[in-house]
Design a binder for these strands. Structure first.
Lengths: 130, 130
DNA sequence: CGGTATCCGAATGGATACTG
DNA sequence: CAGTATCCATTCGGATACCG
């Protein structure tokens, strides 16, 4: 398979068989309501389930569980159970998970840098036209 | 406002007032089903509505319209109407839209490079454990 | 503590029909 | 050609209750 895809080739290849199609599902995942916040919360080290829940503030138990399961399934997070009483479960980013933080931060950086421009564009678009 | 956010500060700041919270909605948008494909399709120049529709292959008229409207509202795409018969409408990335392609491509690159690892992690996770 | 199970409203997105 | 309007199935995600 030829090198340097991702960009130039995308136009003629947006069809069914494009590799671009593989990017979207992953982006849809990390673009869901909680995934990024979970990854960012875990960026400095492991956290227990309820530590994570408190830190995220607003996430339901259900969604935290689902989000963590998906991250675990994709190999981005490890789940370590310590069978004590009360039980203890720690979540931690894998090297793969950490590596994802790089492009995510780049995207975050872009948003921060351009948020004002976006919001102004919206204000103009939403303005009652004369 | 202090510089160099996005990453290190995210942990203690994942709460309500964090700037991290502003990143998620934008990511949710570009992570939706069609936005990225539209941006990539427009990366090499302007396209008409139906050119875009054919190129994307699978998108409904409704979703293409909605996706383009949102991109236009956010200032990422311009919409140029030529009132001929039949009418002609061209869509083109703005400089802001083009600048977004950089971090998106980085993310796309990451996915391409790590898709195998992700899929293997899934296979392991889904395997009937003994 | 760290879940799972169930219910339900809200949002997403496809299909179809109609319009200037 | 480039939409808009309507309907409908599926998915997402919060609230609540219960369990080891």
């Amino acid at each position: 398979m030829s090198p340097s895809h991702t960009d130039v080739t995308c136009r003629e290849a947006v069809g069914i068989h494009s590799r671009c199609r593989m990017v979207t599902p992953v982006l849809a995942r990390i673009g869901d309501k909680w995934t990024i916040l979970v990854i960012m919360a875990l960026s400095e080290g492991s956290l227990r389930f309820n530590e994570l829940k408190r830190l995220l503030d607003g996430i339901s138990q259900r969604m935290l569980t689902l989000t963590l399961r998906t991250l675990e399934r994709d190999g981005l997070v490890t789940r370590t159970v310590t069978p004590s009483i009360p039980p203890r479960v720690d979540y931690e980013l894998t090297p793969l998970g950490h590596s994802l933080r790089v492009p995510i931060s780049a995207l975050g950086q872009w948003v921060m840098e351009n948020l004002d421009e976006i919001e102004e564009a919206r204000a103009v678009f939403d303005a009652p036209e004369e």
